[in-house]
Write a protein that binds this DNA or RNA. Sequence first.
DNA 1: CAATCTGGCTGAAACGTTTCATCCGCGTGG
DNA 2: CCACGCGGATGAAACGTTTCAGCCAGATTG
Lengths: 333, 333
Amino acid sequence: MVGIKDVAKRAGVSIGTVSNVVNRPHVVAVATRNRVLSVIEELGYVRDESARQLRAGRSRIMGLLVLDLGNPFFVDVARGAEQAAHAEGLNIITCNSGQRSDLEASYLAMFAEQRVRGVLLSPVATSGEALRAFRRSGTPYVFVDRKAPTSEASSVAVDDLAGGALAARHLLETGHHNIAFVNGPAILAQCRDREQGVRTALAGSAAELTVLEAIGLDVSSGRDAGARLLGMSPRPTAVFCANDLLALGVLQAMVGAGVRIPEEMAIVGYDDIEFAGAAAVPLTSVRQPAQRLGRTAAELLLAETADTTVEHQAVVFTPELVVRESTRVRRGA
Amino acid sequence: MVGIKDVAKRAGVSIGTVSNVVNRPHVVAVATRNRVLSVIEELGYVRDESARQLRAGRSRIMGLLVLDLGNPFFVDVARGAEQAAHAEGLNIITCNSGQRSDLEASYLAMFAEQRVRGVLLSPVATSGEALRAFRRSGTPYVFVDRKAPTSEASSVAVDDLAGGALAARHLLETGHHNIAFVNGPAILAQCRDREQGVRTALAGSAAELTVLEAIGLDVSSGRDAGARLLGMSPRPTAVFCANDLLALGVLQAMVGAGVRIPEEMAIVGYDDIEFAGAAAVPLTSVRQPAQRLGRTAAELLLAETADTTVEHQAVVFTPELVVRESTRVRRGA
DNA sequence: CAATCTGGCTGAAACGTTTCATCCGCGTGG
DNA sequence: CCACGCGGATGAAACGTTTCAGCCAGATTG
């Protein structure tokens, strides 16, 4: 592999000069510069980032660890973060924990060993061993899609209590009294909060609430939950799902069983991913500003790494209900 | 930041011993080992991967560059690749070119500078400047979802001609004579091949073919294409889309305009992403073994980097048609 | 003409590891 | 008692950069 000293020798200059050509072209005489550049081209020299980084002590990379890249919500978060990072000339590497603590731990360890500039993190749990070890490494981090005390770190989240309440209230207002909530794994704070929001909104109303916990937050878990719903009697007349993937699964199960949506079963999802509007019955959903979430988190992290005196912030966005056919009362029905 | 020599000093041993504790624990006496380990724990020592890599000359990371992470097909590819890489103790970093050559070039440059073990690549174009520069860096790479001459590199792809033909033949067999093909950008070989497959299958038949080129391969481009289809007269009775995102967009446009699927317009997509089956009208689609694609590509790359004498391979998988309601002739209709 | 400045370049140190030759002390076989 | 082997530890070299003090030659100033 060709290194800086091969270039130097070939061009008949010192390695310092080659380095200058690459990093501070203006300080070297134009003739020398061109000679060096053409040798670089000729030899196909590519600088070694690890040496560069070793010397510099820090990298030009920012890590992003998300719960599930299979969820388009997180793809949007990643897009937003990437935008902000590129604007500062940093690269982002995106990793997918798939909600597995062991993978989460392994990626966090990798980030720490890589000495990345900082990490955007949507953790499985804020109290786990993985995270505790990572904290000790001193790598700066910001929580995405997860609230956290500012004493620990900055965070950018969406108000899940409000989101849950938004959905529940909508179902109440459209006349439902027997409501199911299909939740994801309770380890996830998002899930707990959304459920809490639902409970708060329903408290005092006459509505009955059934909570089902799905194994995952994906479409197939949704199908399972849908099957369970179908077996209930009396069957709830409305179901709110902790995210859109679950809702799409439930929807599939209902359509497969010939249940009419929304007449026999109203459905509300969460995230408002692009596919929600294109579903068998377009889904009512609680929209989160995913891209904004990612962008803001990255900006916060950049600000903190640039100037360690900045204080942690906890940004909370407000979700928004998007009503579509899956809960729309038919005119004249 | 605490380094190996801080640990050494604190534990009263040489740095070589600390290194041994970390990398070859068995060669150091158990008493010493424990002492060092507890100092490591106490100080929160994390080894610096850049120094490690500088010394080793190569990294423990594999790069994956995909065309569009917003397309669940590529998320599945990434999953497969990750599986294979983890099995070998390597980490994968996934980057998203979004079909932009400039981003592609920037990520490839990053991979080269990082001296990654190798790169899995689904390129925008195989002839571009970005790729040419990357080749010179000598970083091993394997094409994913893209055929390539074995003289250049290994590749793992799906037979797009067969896929296109599969869809077109299906539409012929279900009685359509006026067929539209909504294609993506012609820079993409996948798109060109699928179109070619369609043309081949239709040659000799009486069917008429209209080709529309969408701006992107996403849902909103599909909606645009759908609008264009609606304006045509005579309007085609069937449409095949170069991927499922496009098909979902077209479907949305049709449903929005009150066009009945499949009676007034049959639709076939490509990729068979999970959302295809959950769509307004479940989509007939050409299924590709996405995860397998990623896994195989990673394995090929690993084999090549382990032993440079292995020859390049061109693996081609065969796609498969999954028929659903969007083209299903209603019984007794 | 001496002193000073300046543009352009050089040489070497430093970054934090890993690795390898070497060394030490001790038990063992001859 | 010597030689040898061996487990265990050490010290220094090397990896490819960046940076910085310093050097040289020529231009500028007083």
